[in-house]
Design a protein around this nucleic acid. Structure first.
Lengths: 298, 298
DNA sequence: TCGTTGCTATACTTTTATGTATGAGCAAGA
DNA sequence: TCTTGCTCATACATAAAAGTATAGCAACGA
């Protein structure tokens, strides 16, 4: 009966072995050596009383038990990262690291100038930008601040409604010169359409809200909204993108602007614990101002 | 510029120093020695770059920065405890530890027979019962399963509605023989009343829902519902308690049962991650069955 | 088939962390 | 005033963890 609690460092090592797939990979990642990592795993198995991995010359295969423990280890890693970010901003001045989570399109097309301006005003601020459509959990503080396109749950969160981001069909002038401008939704069926590869919950919601959308076959399927935007810009065909992004390029023209309109409600979300942290307040305010300016433009 | 991440063990030590108030107390708690704990704190301060405590011969006083980091350390501690509980149930059979959070009254008056029966059926199961009116966060997995008297938020939780627990005024026969049985709500003003010390959100909600409640002065104030119950049983006066608890003692009689009725909606809550864990399923089902039986009795 | 490259496991050495013992400072109580 | 009990800090010895080097095994490609 081993009643000794394992070293918390074992959890970190355990997680890296899970993610790296081998003792050696985890050792490289952690700045340790392979025997040390192996010893950590051995010790953890000894204390828990069951094996975590099946060893092989190709690496370590996690057992079901190890997989069951992975989410806990992930939470530990996220929390200690959040602790370090919080510590980075404890110097009184606006300094330290703030991690922002946003969608690919927002993170790459919209945020950079806002962040550049912000960094000019606060040079001691380090920004971690996670531009990914995989949502990071604000409650678990995987990120400090998130730009969300859905109404956030109201648990221990500071949520600010930014407003609607208007979307619409767009195409490059070159494409429209070649293939003509559709007049009705039904016309779309005769065009090169750029769309999604897999139906997500967000997409199903859009389809449900939009009557008269014809049964279409996409000529280009991409789950990445960024790739869809790039395809529109390259003149591949007609696709949906944010109006404000399209308007930046005079050669990108709206298509069926009257017959089809959509908007994405945008929220800025922050963990309640952080609302007194100067580094987060500053970023939150800058994002709110920048995003509001962005959605107001034609 | 120290880019080394601190040992996660430092966070555990840091938290114990915060809670214990001294290096020595933390050392005792952790099974380490005072110099070791001091070295951990020194190392952490060195890496973070700012002091966490001001030393004195009476102990260590946390700085504001240390206090800002405390919630993160608490989360780490709660998560690693949850990890260990999860690990304790990975042996295939129903075994390991399950932590239950419930109010004082439920935890002490209602749960024990349910848990005794459960433990008879599953002797390898260890139950941690946190009988406290301070709610433990299920999302953060401070507890595995909770009995809640409020509608739970719906984020990543398994919530089962148990039903209403009826409440009412009660008093001991001895008291009523001496002071008479009140006939109306207004009569209560002339009696020895047992009530709360501080207004909580739950109490304010009850007051708002109950018109005609006279302005009363309590003869005994106790925030602990358990203490109120004990006072009722001791014949101190008239107080509110769960009808089913009062009915256990033939000498405890309902007062104004017609004029005043209240119920507490009861829920059983579990983290979604745990719904496949056998040890938690078993406890969850047993609690659901036992609590439903409890609220159905006269 | 043979060499290369990845992996783990083990023996050995060195470094690092921990424990032990002790001194000094402060506060409360006889 | 002088204990007693608590604290933290320091010096030193020891135990524990890390790194180093190497051997063995499986897979891949020439």
């Amino acid at each position: 009966m081993s009643k000794i609690e394992p070293s918390w460092d074992y959890y970190r090592t355990f997680l890296m072995v899970l993610k790296g797939g081998s003792l050696s990979a985890a050792a490289r990642e952690l700045g340790l050596t392979q025997p040390t990592v192996g010893r950590h795993v051995d010790a953890m198995e000894e204390i828990l009383g069951f094996p975590l991995f099946t060893r092989s010359p190709q690496g370590l295969l996690p057992t079901d038990a190890a997989r069951a423990l992975q989410p806990y280890a992930e939470t530990l890693a996220a929390t200690s990262a959040a602790l370090l970010r919080a510590a980075s901003g404890q110097q009184g001045t606006v300094s330290g690291t703030v991690r922002i989570s946003a969608s690919e399109v927002i993170g790459i097309e919209v945020l950079p100038p806002i962040l550049a301006d912000l960094h000019e005003r606060y040079p001691d601020l380090t920004i971690e930008l996670s531009a990914s459509d995989a949502i990071e959990d604000i409650l678990r503080q995987e990120a400090d601040i998130a730009v969300r396109m859905a109404v956030p749950g109201q648990d221990a969160l500071v949520a600010l409604h930014i407003g609607p981001v208007p979307l619409g069909f767009h195409a490059h002038r070159r494409y429209l010169d070649r293939c003509g401008m559709p007049e009705t939704l039904a016309d779309l069926a005769r065009h090169s359409l750029i769309g999604y590869d897999h139906e997500t919950a967000a997409i199903r919601a859009i389809i449900a809200r939009t009557p008269g959308l014809p049964e279409v076959r996409f000529a280009l399927k991409a789950d990445s909204n960024l790739a869809q935007l790039a395809a529109i810009r390259a003149g591949f065909g007609i696709g949906i993108c944010q109006n404000a992004l399209a308007a930046r390029d005079p050669n990108i023209l709206p298509v069926l602007a009257d017959g089809f309109a959509m908007k994405l409600e945008t929220w800025l979300v922050m963990h309640e614990n952080l609302k007194t942290a100067p580094r987060c307040r500053v970023v939150f305010d800058a994002l709110a101002k920048g995003l509001r300016t962005y959605i107001r433009q034609p």
